[in-house]
Simulated assay, not measured.
Amino acid sequence: MLRSILDNDFYKFTMQNAVVKLFPNAYTRYAFINRGKHRFPPGFAVRLREAVDAMAGLQLTSDERLFLEEMCPYLDPTYHDFLQGFRYNPLEVQIEQDGEDLSVTIEGLWYRTILWEVPLMTLISQIWYEMADEKRDDDDTVVARTRQKIEHYGHLGVRIAEFGTRRRHSYEVHDLVVGALKRYGGSTFTGTSNVHMAHRHNVKPLGTHAHEWFMFHAARFGFKMANTLALEHWVEVYRGDLGIALSDTFTTQIFFDSFDKMFAKLFDGIRHDSGDAIDFARTTIEHYQRLGIDPRSKTIIFSDALDTEKVENITRFCEGRIGMSFGIGTNFTNDVGLKPMNMVIKMTETRPEGRQWLPVVKLSDIREKNTGDPEMITLARRILSLPS
């Protein structure tokens, strides 16, 4: 069902490159979390297994490699060689179904397993809608709705990226949406997180790192040092490129305790992914000001469940105070007249450098988004002096 090894979010490849260089011996485990309590029909696991097994045949083409070389010069030739030789190993993915409940787990070397999360979610979503056999809006309606949104954002004068791979309705809808964004978006549309769609439509692939980068560092180096070392290692690999830092893996409060003047100057900005966006913007502006940095020289990438109303409210607050850009996901790629799925796949454990397996956690600004072992979450909050 997947047509390209690049049908994945860009930050998976940028993180993979960093993991290959810095943590080649680390192992990880991931698990599917059914936040929406979806009920899976008989035979779903079989369909998913078939799609996962077929991924073993995906490989980077010469044309795709040339695209990466031209668009992403900070990915060096050794990584391009690595990716060209990379093949998915379906044995790393375990899929089980018990009645209407679905279990999906992943285990293996981190530099390999890191690529599974987004394609698996994409497949789960697409197979779910196919088996539900519910009629979506027609292509013309999807394109018209996308055009209306991007032209509205253009009138607001903001920059918009498409971040909707993991919960897209289908490949076909995703392709329609990115095509419409390019056709009607002009300078408003900055690119897509999906590298295959970026290649297909000749736009920029966008992304830096995800929560798992920080989650691993917490297990490897401790909660107190996680943010600092995760940022330092990112700078070590990318030397100033890919300079947007994710802020909420262990709450924004803890992030800003580590985001000192050096990091604030080194990184171009910060990505917001949970909690109240206006409160986050206010806190970020004040943080830069305390450090003697003009917030208008920095950017916040807002990416938490955005729609047109949220973008308007954020724009009104941030305009003239700090740079801003928006990554919109499901509201682009699964706005087709059906209810989107609510699910995630998260890293659950890691075995860094030959050590024992250790649970990893995420402490979002919204507690409902916390993931991981409850006892480890309690321990993390205690170590970080966060309310229990």
Rank of each mutant, 00 (worst) to 15 (best):
M1G: 11
S4I: 00
S4N: 05
I5R: 04
I5K: 05
D9H: 07
F13E: 01
L22G: 06
Y27S: 02
Y27W: 03
R29I: 00
G36Q: 06
R49K: 13
M55A: 07
G57I: 06
G57D: 10
Q59K: 15
D63V: 09
L68F: 07
L83K: 07
P90Q: 04
L91C: 04
D101Y: 07
V104Y: 04
L109P: 02
R112T: 02
W116L: 07
W116V: 03
W116R: 04
L120V: 09
M121E: 12
I127T: 04
M131V: 03
R136P: 15
A144H: 08
R147N: 10
E151K: 14
H152F: 15
L156E: 08
F163T: 14
D175L: 03
D175K: 10
L176A: 12
V177T: 11
V178T: 15
K182V: 14
F189V: 09
T192R: 08
H196R: 03
N202A: 13
F216T: 04
A218K: 08
K224S: 13
K224A: 14
K224W: 02
K224D: 10
A226W: 00
N227W: 00
L229D: 02
L231F: 07
E232W: 12
E232M: 14
H233G: 02
Q253H: 13
I254N: 15
L266F: 11
F267K: 08
I270C: 11
E286Y: 02
H287V: 04
S297M: 08
S303K: 03
R321A: 11
I322M: 12
N342H: 06
K346C: 04
Q356T: 14
Q356E: 15
L358C: 06
K362Y: 01
N370R: 07
T371D: 01
G372T: 02
T378E: 13
L384Y: 03
S385K: 14
S388D: 10
